[in-house]
């Protein structure tokens, strides 16, 4: 009994710590202007989420989030940042009121719906009662591998995973069609009717078009 309570206390400390760090990182993303810092903090956010997933018993999700969310997504964003700008302009204060209003209203609506959610950790809630527990009971007999998530992903919901592969293929194809295969991504300049498109008020681009190319995906 003492072991259970101490385990719960340590889980509580972990949860609260991860929540606090996530909120701090999310607010820092809102406040910062440097795109490099923003992109790296997004990677930190994903990594913290992955750590919290382990605490929430979702080990497969945790290593996928650490590899894909914190790894691949950060690399993609860094590549896009290198091909685009390094700094973002600060938002003028009169353009912040509308978004703040919308966000506060949406947040209040969601918090109002919060008491209807099942209690955290309730094993008898509707979400935890039917299909998921059925997968647990059947995997031991039908698939005969220990990892239930793998069994569901590759066997029971195999067509879903196949559709996921199709989505990734389409996305890769789309990126190639948008950026081209010749390694000149980000270098091309459009001149419709011989006119360079720049706003009269726009400052010149904030990045030197130097020769650090080669980041075509």
């Amino acid at each position: 009994m003492i072991f259970v309570s101490s385990a719960m206390v340590s889980t509580l400390i972990l949860d609260v710590g991860f929540m606090a760090m996530l909120v701090v990182v999310a607010f820092a993303i809102v406040r910062l202007q440097s795109l490099f810092a923003i992109v790296m903090l997004q990677g930190v956010y994903s990594l913290l989420c992955a750590a919290w997933f382990v605490s929430l018993d979702a080990v497969d999700v945790a290593f996928t989030e650490a590899a894909v969310g914190a790894g691949v997504a950060t690399i993609l964003m860094l590549a896009a940042m290198l091909l685009a700008d390094r700094e973002s302009k600060p938002v003028p204060i009169n353009r912040q009121f509308g978004p703040i209003l919308v966000v506060i209203l949406a947040g209040i609506a969601l918090l109002f719906a919060l008491p209807d959610m099942p209690t955290v950790g309730d094993g008898n809630s509707p979400a935890n009662s039917y299909v998921g527990m059925d997968y647990i009971a059947r995997t031991a007999d039908e698939i005969k591998i220990p990892n239930i998530v793998t069994a569901v992903l590759a066997s029971y919901r195999g067509y879903d995973t196949f559709g996921e592969v199709v989505v990734i293929f389409s996305a890769g194809l789309g990126v190639l069609l948008l950026l081209g295969l010749d390694g000149n991504a980000g270098k091309w300049k459009a001149k419709p009717n011989g006119i360079q498109l720049y706003a009269p008020s726009a400052p010149p681009a904030r990045i030197k078009p130097d020769n650090d190319g080669g980041e075509s995906s």
Binding site: A7, L56, D57, M117, V120, S125, N128
Partner: peptide
């Protein structure tokens, strides 16, 4: 993931 967590 929080919804799918079962305590202990």
């Amino acid at each position: 993931i929080t919804i799918g967590k079962v305590m202990d």
